[in-house]
């Protein structure tokens, strides 16, 4: 929950589930990240970008799903995301849905890791028929995580790469992200309303031992009957 906004440096984390190296998904994520950096520079702030290629975490993500064990690379990724001021999340579309690796990764995160964090969602596919995957499948996942998804979703089928209109959409999404990050919205939500969201003890999003001692369950722990 730290924030470098005072120093004018925003931490941007780019999560890509692209399978090849280099992948078109990663290329799309890079383009958004570059645009975010450029826009921030114009506005006299700067962005520190960290890339997380999920293909490198694939075995740790699957181990975490079946055993709850979080490996060292996955722990590093979780720490980076927890500290991020903004996130770009990009995936290829497989069988009419986001990559299973992408979905699995976000499923093993603590529910409260991304509360209010501004996010750009992006997907790539071989055909325009998958265009609604971002809005109909990815957006609901991030709604569950209570992240702040920017209004413009990015989707690139093969034909979009050469389309100037796509560059414009990238620019739009990047600007939305920059403005949300600069506004300090996420930090303010967390400062003012953190306790009003559900948390689990020892979640990766929680820096402190912040146990609410003033609850019905805590009172029941010290004698008496449930009401």
């Amino acid at each position: 929950m730290n924030n470098n906004q005072d120093a004018g440096i925003h931490r941007l984390v780019v999560v890509s589930a692209g399978a090849s190296d280099p992948s078109s998904t990663r290329m799309l994520a890079d383009r958004v990240a570059e645009r975010v950096s450029a826009l921030a520079a114009q506005r006299e702030s700067s962005v520190q970008v960290r890339f997380i290629d999920l293909r490198e975490l694939a075995t740790e993500v699957s181990a975490a799903l079946v055993s709850g064990l979080t490996g060292p690379k996955l722990r590093g990724a979780i720490a980076a995301i927890g500290d991020a001021d903004g996130l770009i999340a990009a995936t290829p579309v497989y069988k009419a849905g986001p990559s299973g690796l992408f979905t699995s990764f976000f499923q093993v995160l603590d529910d409260d890791l991304l509360i209010a964090t501004p996010v750009v969602l992006a997907a790539t596919a071989g055909t325009a028929r998958h265009a609604l995957v971002v809005d109909e499948q990815m957006r609901s996942l991030f709604a569950y995580l209570r992240a702040t998804v920017v209004p413009t979703s990015l989707f690139a089928a093969t034909e979009d790469w050469a389309d100037p209109a796509f560059a414009q959409r990238i620019d739009r999404a990047a600007r939305e992200l920059v403005l949300l990050v600069e506004s300090g919205f996420a930090q303010q939500v967390r400062d003012e309303a953190w306790d009003s969201y559900q948390h689990e003890f020892d979640s990766a999003a929680d820096d402190e031992v912040s146990v609410d001692l003033d609850s019905d369950m805590m009172r029941l722990a010290t004698g008496g009957s449930a009401s």
Binding site: F201, D202, L220, A221
Partner: peptide
């Protein structure tokens, strides 16, 4: 494993607390 209320109850009564310590870091 991860329930502070149980730790609180153990502490309140002066009982012991056991962490199974097997499955997680």
């Amino acid at each position: 494993i991860r329930t502070p209320e149980i730790a609180e109850q153990a502490a309140y009564y002066g009982d012991g607390f056991f962490a199974n310590n097997i499955f997680w870091p």
